[in-house]
């Protein structure tokens, strides 16, 4: 949300945030759910599920590692499930 410069814009911003709070959270939840599935597919081989495109997804690991910690915690694993990824 852009910073409001006058009181009217400020109140309109607050009103807008109020109205879209629930809707935005739902969309973010849906997107996160899709991201979680994507993470799972990328890391599937390390969990014993064959990944036919491992050669390509390997390139994504450095990018995905930044989100790996939050992902495994969301999946109910308090500690990293992968020995060589010591995020926590």
């Amino acid at each position: 949300m852009t910073e409001s410069r006058n009181p009217v814009a400020h109140w309109l911003d607050l009103y807008d945030q109020t109205m879209r709070l629930g809707h935005e959270a739902e969309i973010k939840r849906e997107l996160r759910s899709q991201d979680d599935l994507f993470m799972f597919l990328c890391f599937s081989e390390m969990m014993g599920i064959p990944n036919p495109v491992a050669y390509y997804t390997l390139e994504l690991y450095p990018i995905l590692l930044t989100e790996f910690h939050e992902w495994h915690q969301r999946m109910g694993m308090d500690k990293s499930p992968l020995d060589h990824v010591r995020c926590c």
Partner: peptide, 21 residues
């Protein structure tokens, strides 16, 4: 804070959302 469910929210915005819910 995960940016989705747990998000610190301005109190009047949260009041409006709670009320309309």
């Amino acid at each position: 804070n995960d940016g989705v469910d747990f998000v610190p929210t301005q109190k009047w915005v949260l009041w409006g959302h709670h009320f309309t819910s």
